[in-house]
Design a protein around this nucleic acid. Structure first.
Length: 473
DNA sequence: TGAAATGTTGGGGCG
DNA sequence: ACGCCCCAACATTTC
């Protein structure tokens, strides 16, 4: 009997190990592995420069691991698939599910059309621990509070699927197709290309190396260490997770029973909880598809945001005059990544000191982050803004100076990204405007010239925003 | 996964 | 010895 021909449609699952769609396809016939670059329908959230950069390298890595058999296309997904199906007499299309509203909508249409044509369509869960449609409160409504969500999910954690190993042998349908990763032009006119090259190695292989390194050296101090941006105490797995170079099931499985020789229980559980926050973001996005643009708490709809292009740009480029904020924004600009605590600090500054709409920050992050993820990004911006369901209270405002003194005590992180302040003593590093003339001169700093003066008064701007908030009630 | 404002306590200086 | 004040240190409340 002739082999069944199955298209494995790669999306946010750019890996061979623990890939349900690939695994099932390989066990049932010969495959055509396909990736289609198609951003039609993404609206305001078509792929950003940072993600494009990562995707390029990630696809190159996947293509290598598939012996160059990955078929790459640029175009309308439905059209590409149908053409392939006709050309190669394909019987089945398998893929792992995605959860962005525009993607689920498109995929539902594609699935319907293919089924009507008698094509066998099978979709799988490859990207989440707990899929949103399966987790509901006893009253049938989605969760709005993390703790309850977490309790429910971990209560049924025995239901997590077993990690699937890499297919031992893959049979490919012979396909002649010349499009290479370069032809997708993901690095074409991409301003971050080159800039990010020094910091990352995308790909499945590296994802596992990084996880291993994290477990060996950093997990033991995760709970406390994760607050200090100069330390390497965080996993750095977020971009790998976003593109599916590693799955949350693989990570969860590897971490959950870690022995005491590597890390204590509270460190392990704290890390697992962070994975669960990602799940919660997907849960809320799935059930509330307007999350990327609409306040989850509607009373925020009447908030009198300022729109000031220059202020926004000063924030974007790390020229606010607050060293901790600027260091973090430069880290983002140069690497496509920002440490978690710093994300909270810069978001708080934009929203609560500059009083600029969280959408502006969301967009800038979306453009640059290599781990830009619709669910996590919009969820967390709403978290900081206070407009989310289970969000930080609105009045929680970070003070960049205090955050620096607390979490970057010896200025290692701040100096790393702000070389122009490198020679400033610790005492004034987080508030250079207080430094005496001679200290500034010693450090070769001219405020307003080599480094900006603070663009707002922290106390006054905080009061202004809190006042505006109080009027909403 | 805050920070500022306000309240309380207790030790030491001093008349 | 005692009361009073000051203020640091910590706790609580408020935004």
């Amino acid at each position: 009997m002739q082999d069944k021909k199955i298209i494995v449609w790669f999306r946010a699952d750019l890996r061979l190990k623990d890939n349900p769609a690939l695994h099932h396809a390989v066990s049932q016939g010969a495959i055509i592995p396909v990736f289609i670059f198609d951003e039609q329908g993404a609206g305001d959230f078509s792929i950003g420069d940072g993600s494009k950069w990562w995707l390029h390298h990630s696809l190159a890595a996947l293509s290598d691991s598939l012996d160059g058999k990955l078929q790459l296309y640029r175009g309308t997904t439905a059209v590409v698939l149908e053409k392939l199906i006709k050309q190669f007499d394909v019987s089945s299309v398998y893929w792992n599910r995605c959860y962005e509203p525009w993607v689920t909508e498109r995929d539902a249409q594609i699935s319907k059309k293919l089924l009507e044509q008698g094509i066998d369509v099978q979709t799988f869960n490859g990207s989440l621990l707990w899929e949103p449609q399966e987790i509901l409160k006893s009253d049938g409504t989605p969760y709005k509070v993390f703790t309850a969500f977490f309790k429910r999910c971990t209560g049924i954690s025995g239901d997590l699927r077993i990690v699937i190993s890499k297919p031992t042998k893959i049979k490919f349908v012979p396909v002649k197709h010349a499009t290479s990763v370069e032809d997708l032009q993901l690095l074409h006119h991409n301003p971050v290309a080159g800039r990010f090259d020094n910091y990352w190695t995308p790909g499945e292989l590296q994802a596992h190396k990084i996880l291993q390194k994290f477990i060996e050296y950093h997990l033991k101090n995760y709970k406390i260490g994760r607050d200090f941006p100069a330390q390497e105490s965080v996993s750095l797995l977020s971009p790998y997770l976003h593109f599916g170079e590693i799955s949350p099931v693989q990570i969860w499985d590897k971490i959950k029973d870690i022995g005491h020789e590597y890390a204590s229980r509270d460190n392990v559980e704290h890390f697992l909880k962070e994975l669960a926050w990602r799940e919660f973001a997907y849960h809320v996005l799935y059930h509330q598809p307007t999350m990327p643009r609409k306040n989850l708490q509607h009373k925020f709809d009447h908030f009198p945001w300022r729109y000031d292009k220059d202020d926004l740009q000063a924030w974007q480029l790390g020229m606010t005059g607050y060293p901790v904020v600027d260091a973090a924004m430069r880290e983002l600009f140069n690497t496509g990544y920002m440490h978690n605590r710093m994300r909270m600090v810069v978001a708080s500054f934009l929203i609560k000191n500059l009083m600029i709409n969280w959408h502006q920050g969301e967009d800038w992050f979306w453009q640059l982050l290599v781990d830009a993820d619709l669910a996590s990004n919009s969820f967390n911006w709403q978290w900081v803004a206070g407009s989310g369901y289970d969000a930080a209270p609105y009045f929680r405002v970070f003070n960049p100076t205090a955050q620096g003194k607390k979490f970057d005590k010896n200025g290692e992180y701040t100096r790393r990204w702000l070389p122009e302040l490198a020679k400033l003593p610790d005492k004034y590093l987080f508030e250079p405007w207080l430094a005496p003339e001679n200290v500034l001169r010693e450090a070769s700093i001219v405020l307003g010239s080599t480094y900006p003066k603070p663009m707002v008064d922290i106390a006054k701007s905080r009061t202004r925003t809190l006042g505006a908030f109080n009027k909403l009630k």
